[in-house]
Write a protein that binds this DNA or RNA. Structure first.
Length: 564
RNA sequence: CGGGGCGUAGCGCAGCCUGGUAGCGCACCUGCUUUGGGAGCAGGGUGUCGGAGGUUCGAAUCCUCUCGCCCCGACCA
């Protein structure tokens, strides 16, 4: 490709609405342009990268035995009504009407469509298992799209769905996909971690997320420094440390006028925050409950909801708190409270704590969980760095991650709702057992930039690079330079190397800056100065390493550098 | 949904408070010089000041409505 003919509008200045590195660099490198909130044009350079990711995903999926299909982006409401998600999914589902006033939606995911496809075609266990995938544009009307391709409303996704006659088969495919995803992200040269995840509203019993580690990630991940345990912070399990022995002193009421927050009470009474028993009132579909946690920890509402088997949990408002505790907000405690008490394991470790007295402006001191109140103890808090690993004796570290892949075991949620059944060997009709497996294509490309850049621009790992090599003639007005550059370029092209020839009539500095910005891993510079010695210069983007090679050996040397 | 902010040339922004010829830098076009890390000089403005309505002799500027975008939070997964 000749630069002079390519739509590759690089920017010196950063557009004001970009706020993560990958978005800034994708804009500056002329890869993407915004069309509307969370909706982007992919320019030629951007599409090349997305195509690279796509191709890696496609070949690995095919190798894993999955088959590619393509489903419509516009989906009739009936299918979503059958699964009940038309009502459950919320505003992220963009609903549209056709000219006959019939309801449709833009597919944010395709469980319904694929289940419909398979129930029409599959009758017998002999046709199973089946893994079908597509690489397609999705639309989710996100509340707050941001970070460029990382959280767009319209985005490219690979979504795969598998169908099985038995649990064992479904689990084997889950492992197959786990391994496939590992290969895919390894091939993309990403630093990533597979983590245990919450299954969310899609349902199912277990799932893993694949996270690219990056400070700009939207998710917090807890991982063990000793074993390979890793989990989304929402889910990271914590051990039960057992009760600390009760302190010697008896419970004592103290006046704490106006001191409501953990900080205030801790400062007022001169006790560490870790000695406080923080008590929050939650409303659930099964009534108000009191939830306790050590003062310096946070309650994890995902865990709470799961442990209580509740449909919803939400922090109670002032009135509800008053009703549950008999006191204004800020003075709730587990001792003699009307609501059922659920306490995090961390509370057990407090020998002699401070907590609200369920009375205005009053707290209790010397409260011992083992002695002074009854509670149901559960794992209810967010893990913090330094917590003990639930699987070994290692310590947890908290990192940030970008979720690029997610695998679920779905079970029969959709097949039952939609009547997708098969006949087993005994001739019984049974619902198909399903799995689903997604990869964010654009997000993977963006995540790669988050991990591979420097102050000058992008540094593509070669598997994702839009070109294998960039050929830079320093001065296109010099005939000798142009002749050698053209020769190298056409030889590379003939050998199947995807090269970009910067044949623009620009100053050297401009070309170098652009080359660094768009980040092709290998660059060859042809200039009059070195040409006099019969040499050209090869530069590696990542290391910055520069070396001179003979013109005749340039193509061979470049191929070596590219393969490395 | 709550709070805050922004909308002026392709991009980044000033001008608005205190109404009176629409500006700066970059980009772009022309010419000359320059030519290995975002060149210099000279010339050129490419604009529905987001849109609509209002106040006024006169509105980018003041008022009302509206659309779009961004940030923080909540929500959702």
């Amino acid at each position: 490709m000749r630069y002079s003919r390519m739509l590759l509008p690089t920017l010196k200045e950063v557009p004001s609405d970009a706020d993560v590195i990958s978005q800034k660099l994708m804009m500056r490198a002329g890869m993407i342009r915004k069309v509307a909130a969370g909706i982007y044009n992919l320019l030629p350079l951007g599409l090349r990268v997305v195509n690279k990711v796509e191709q890696i995903v496609r070949t690995e999926m095919n190798r894993a035995g999955a088959q590619e299909v393509l489903m419509p982006m516009v989906v009739p409401a009936e299918l979503w009504q059958e699964s009940h998600r038309w009502d459950e999914y919320g505003k992220e589902l963009l609903r549209i009407r056709d000219r006959h006033n019939r309801d449709f939606c833009l597919g944010p995911t395709h469980e319904e469509v694929i289940t419909d496809m398979v129930r029409r075609e599959v009758r017998s266990y002999r046709e199973l298992p089946l893994n079908l995938y597509q690489i397609q544009t999705k639309f989710r009307d996100e509340i707050r799209p941001r970070f460029g391709l990382m959280r767009g409303r319209e985005f490219m996704m690979k979504d795969a769905y598998s169908f099985h006659a038995t649990d064992e088969s479904a689990e084997a495919e889950y492992r197959n996909m786990f391994d496939t995803y590992t290969r895919i992200f390894e091939r993309c040269s990403l630093q990533f971690r597979a983590v245990e995840a919450d299954t969310g509203s899609i349902g199912g019993r277990f799932s893993h997320e694949f996270h690219v580690l990056a400070d700009s990630g939207e998710d917090a991940i807890a991982s063990c420094d000793a074993c390979d345990y890793a989990a989304n912070l929402e889910r990271a399990e914590l051990k039960d440390p057992g009760f600390a022995p009760a302190g010697p002193k008896a419970v004592e009421k103290v006046s704490t006028p106006g001191k409501k927050s953990v900080e205030e009470v801790s400062a007022f009474l001169g006790v560490p925050q870790s000695s406080l028993i923080k008590t929050l009132i939650y409303e659930t579909d099964r009534g108000a409950v009191a939830v306790c946690v050590r003062g310096d920890f946070e309650i994890n509402e995902v865990k709470l909801k799961r442990e209580l088997k509740a449909q919803f949990v939400r922090l109670a408002d002032d009135d509800a708190v008053r009703k549950a505790t008999g006191a204004p907000v800020g003075f709730a405690g587990p001792v003699r409270i009307k609501a059922p008490v659920y306490a995090d394991f961390s509370v057990k470790g407090i020998p002699s704590g401070v907590t609200g007295a369920n009375e205005a402006d009053t707290h209790l001191m010397n409260v011992s969980p083992s002695r002074d109140f009854n509670a149901t103890y559960l794992d209810l808090r967010n893990a913090v760095a330094g917590d003990e690993c639930p699987r070994c004796s290692g310590r947890l570290v908290i990192k940030r991650g970008i979720e690029v892949g997610h695998i679920f075991k779905l079970g029969t949620k959709y097949s039952e709702a939609m009547g997708a059944t098969f006949l087993d060997p005994e001739g019984r009709e049974r619902p198909l057992i399903m799995g689903c497996y997604g990869i964010g294509i654009g997000r993977t490309a963006a995540a790669s930039i988050e991990q591979n850049h420097d102050e000058f621009g992008i540094i593509w790992p070669s598997p994702l690079s839009p070109f294998d090599c960039e050929v830079v003639p320093v001065n296109v007005k010099d005939e000798g330079t142009v002749k050698v550059a053209e020769e190298i370029y056409s030889k590379l092209t003939a050998r199947g190397v995807d090269a970009l020839l910067d044949d623009r009539d620009e100053r050297a500095g401009v070309k170098f800056k652009d080359a660094d910005l768009i980040g092709i891993p290998v660059r060859v510079t042809i200039g009059e100065r070195n040409l006099k010695q019969g040499m050209v210069e090869i530069k590696e983007r990542r290391s910055g390493e520069v070396r001179l090679v003979k013109v005749e050996e340039a193509v061979e040397e470049l191929e070596k550098a590219i393969k490395k």
